[in-house]
C-alpha cells in the first residue's frame, strides 16, 4: 500500500506510482527516470569526480610569485603550511572541507550505489536516506578552498607579489561539480524501490 506513492522532486506533491514515465500532476515535471539510466549516470559522474579529485590533489591549487621566485602549493601542502604557522582551526577546516568531505561523499555515494539492490529492513533504509541527506548538505562546503584561492588571486596581484590559481583549482572545482551532479542523479527513491521491486 505504502509503495504506491511517489513524491515529485520539484514540488514535493504526492503522485500515484505507475509503470513507465510519470509526469507530476501538480507541476507537470517528469518524476521518474528509468532506474538504470539514473544509476549509470550516477556511476559515470562519480568516476569522473574521483579522477578529478586525484588530479586536484597532485597539481598545485595555488601559485605564488614572490619577487620572481615561483612557489606552488597543493591542497595538502597548503594545510601543512597553515598548521606550521599555528593556524590550527583554519588548517583543520580546510582539511575537512577539501580533503575529508569529498572522500566521505565518494564513499557514501559508492555505498548507496553498491547496496541499492539489496533488500533492507526499515531502520537501515532510514539510515541510508539520512546519509544521503547529510551528503547533500555538506557537499557544497568543499568549495571553501576554491573560493579562498579565488579571493587570494583576486586581491594579491601587486607588482612584486602575485598569487594565481593553479591547475589543481580547475580540477577541484570540476570535482565538486561532478560530485554534486552524481548525488543529484541518484534518485533517493531508488533506495526504496530496491526493496519493493524484488
Amino acid at each position: 500500500m505504502k509503495n504506491r506513492y511517489i513524491s515529485c522532486k520539484i514540488c514535493e506533491s504526492v503522485n500515484l506510482k505507475r509503470d513507465g514515465e510519470i509526469y507530476c500532476r501538480v507541476c507537470k515535471n517528469r518524476i521518474t527516470q528509468s532506474k538504470s539510466n539514473s544509476l549509470n549516470s550516477a556511476w559515470a559522474m562519480l568516476i569522473t569526480a574521483i579522477l578529478f579529485y586525484i588530479i586536484a590533489n597532485v597539481y598545485p591549487i595555488l601559485v605564488i610569485d614572490k619577487f620572481g621566485i615561483i612557489s606552488s602549493n597543493t591542497i595538502l601542502e597548503g594545510v601543512i603550511v597553515l598548521w606550521e604557522e599555528g593556524s590550527y582551526p583554519i588548517a583543520i577546516i580546510i582539511f575537512i572541507a577539501s580533503v575529508f568531505v569529498p572522500l566521505l561523499k565518494f564513499f557514501l555515494i559508492l555505498y548507496i550505489l553498491i547496496n541499492y539492490k539489496k533488500p533492507r529492513v526499515g531502520s537501515r533504509k532510514m539510515d541510508q536516506s539520512k546519509l544521503y541527506h547529510i551528503t547533500e548538505i555538506i557537499g557544497p562546503w568543499s568549495m571553501v578552498d576554491v573560493f579562498v584561492v579565488s579571493i587570494l588571486a583576486g586581491v594579491v596581484h601587486v607588482g612584486s607579489v602575485k598569487i594565481t590559481a593553479g591547475v589543481g583549482a580547475t580540477a577541484f572545482v570540476l570535482m565538486v561539480f561532478f560530485t554534486m551532479l552524481s548525488a543529484m542523479s541518484i534518485d533517493i527513491r531508488l533506495i526504496k524501490e530496491g526493496k519493493d521491486s524484488d
Binding site: P140, F147, L152
Partner: peptide
C-alpha cells in the same frame, strides 16, 4: 527550486574569513 541548491554565497562568506587569516 533547482537554482536554490546551487547557491553558495554563505560558503563564500566563510571563505573570506579563511582568506583573511592567510593574508
Amino acid at each position: 527550486v533547482i537554482s536554490k541548491s546551487w547557491e553558495m554565497i554563505d560558503i563564500f562568506t566563510v571563505s573570506i574569513l579563511v582568506a583573511l587569516v592567510k593574508l
